[in-house]
Write a protein that binds this DNA or RNA. Sequence first.
DNA 1: ACAGATCGTGAGAGCGCTCTCACGCCAACG
DNA 2: CGTTGGCGTGAGAGCGCTCTCACGATCTGT
Lengths: 349, 349
Amino acid sequence: MAVSEAGNGRGVTLDAVARVAGVSRATVSRVVNGNPKVGEEAKRQVERAIERLGYIPNPAARSLVTRRSDSIGVVIPEPPGMLFGDPFFPRLLRGISTELAARNYQLVLLMPQSPEEEPRVERYLAAGHVDGALLVSLHGEDAMPAALAARGIPVVVGGRPPGGEGVSYVDVDNVGGAKAAVAHLIRAGRRTIATIGGPPDMSAGTDRLEGYRQGLAAGGLALDAALEAAADFTQEGGAEAMRRILAARPDVDGVFAASDLMAAGALQVLRAAGRRVPEDVSIVGFDDSSIAATAEPPLTSIRQPIEEMGREMVRLLLEQASRPGSVPRKVILATQLVRRRSSEGGPKR
Amino acid sequence: MAVSEAGNGRGVTLDAVARVAGVSRATVSRVVNGNPKVGEEAKRQVERAIERLGYIPNPAARSLVTRRSDSIGVVIPEPPGMLFGDPFFPRLLRGISTELAARNYQLVLLMPQSPEEEPRVERYLAAGHVDGALLVSLHGEDAMPAALAARGIPVVVGGRPPGGEGVSYVDVDNVGGAKAAVAHLIRAGRRTIATIGGPPDMSAGTDRLEGYRQGLAAGGLALDAALEAAADFTQEGGAEAMRRILAARPDVDGVFAASDLMAAGALQVLRAAGRRVPEDVSIVGFDDSSIAATAEPPLTSIRQPIEEMGREMVRLLLEQASRPGSVPRKVILATQLVRRRSSEGGPKR
DNA sequence: ACAGATCGTGAGAGCGCTCTCACGCCAACG
DNA sequence: CGTTGGCGTGAGAGCGCTCTCACGATCTGT
């Protein structure tokens, strides 16, 4: 009964509702938009008419005059390695979606699959389809944040943009997390601690490397370039990096990998090389993804509040959108060490 | 130089372009929309003006008159277990996104986080924000497909809708895949083959169970309810199911799990119970997700063409949207057995 | 040479909504 | 009693675009 006659809503206009309710379009509009300056009686009539006709406002018409779309764009370029096997994006999207839903905003997902597609995405965002944009997972000197900002589109970036500041962003405490991981390894009695870093053109890579170095320094251990190997966040990359480290420093007894996937790759290589984990070598990963719990042995890892990151990005964006010209802001979320078997054992502390 | 003066595009209207180009609005509109009935000279002038002003059409205004939005909605309700640790959604989204991008459509992602939010989503879709909707991963008798169809919104479902037919859908060959998995186990010499099924209210669950049964029948093996345990696609659920099976049938020598995650859980339980994999028990999973390759031993699994599924869903949807009232169609995509160590060994064949 | 077809172009009518402004009403004020 | 001031309401002007229709110019056939 709620939904009714004329194919419910398709084609029912404000005007039709006004006629049925015996009021003017303006009054119906007020009721629909919750404007308080409407009489009791008129309001009742309008509500009944809306119900009866199954009226749903035409978003295009509304958007045309309000110049808002009540939706935001989420841009996720495709770093193929990261997307798979890592529930990072689903979780981030969930956080974003939750916060948006609570504010009655919609989410337009844009996945440029190659740099060539970026202009298309940029154009789309610039067209006013969305009230703002969330950019995630930028490589190198991505020009998009700046380009969008120049066009006056509110932007918030997920993860510290490598290209420098000048734009709002939300990030997890990569440095602190990595540092905590290393401290944990040192506490476990490890003294020859290697790291498998992420790509040098992503801040998640460089920041975790920085944290690793700070961790060593804090523990009074010396740096050694032979103990640092960069990879691409993938399992295969992690395995490859582990091989290099093992070749250069066979005496390695601790490994901090900047992602669980890479840690898993390292695990396989270590095992193949006859090293026992955690007896001979302790490993700590990053992300606390499902693979960490699944691996054998389960991986100690650094948990990052991904959903919260998504939510915070939305808050920042909408705040910024509502107050144009506000100064860029950054939010850093704390990480947390999750202990599992891969870092147990080891020598006495 | 490309982008220019007035803050590039924001606020530049068709009319402004027309004035600069010295033609009428209609002509500019024709050029923008690729209408061939435009003279060479006029076209050149218009293109130059567009370039100079950085004109981008206002999507709301366009949508208001064309009654199309050039975007489609993708509804992903949140079955928390499946979302994590399983790159299913990212891959599906990627397939969808690829196909949409090729046709210049946009993707609006809707993630109702609870059944209470579904009306909101339905309302949104019904408002004409999108030209059609893709629904994924339905549990039980989800009313949404029917409700949307009733409102005249083109719908395509991903995975056979449990509630029956009457709506277009794309699915992978779950029955065939499961059957192939069982056949593979039989070929490996296994004779006491259990299955860890998915939720009975999801077609991916029931269809794979059906395939398992067909596989046993085809191999001349008898069914045994004690060899069938349902779970929820999660690792923990898989572990739990494995324990039940082990308790009832300690002689089990083959396991077909309806997801890799559950297979991984089973693996841990088997190992904890002193069973060697694959020497004592062979395991085959489903999905061929990253965890399959990561597990120790790596899991034989059934690969499903997830990206292709996404693409096909889009094709079906747009076809349906362009030809209203067309009859619902279903598309079933083939699966493929991927052999890994978890099903090697075993007794002589 | 003229009728008719063809082609490029412009004028103008909306699409469905929001929002400003003005108006009529009635209570309260001096 | 006339005036001021809310308050609820309606009229109407757009928002920027598409698309139909009509019109003048050029082309074709006889």
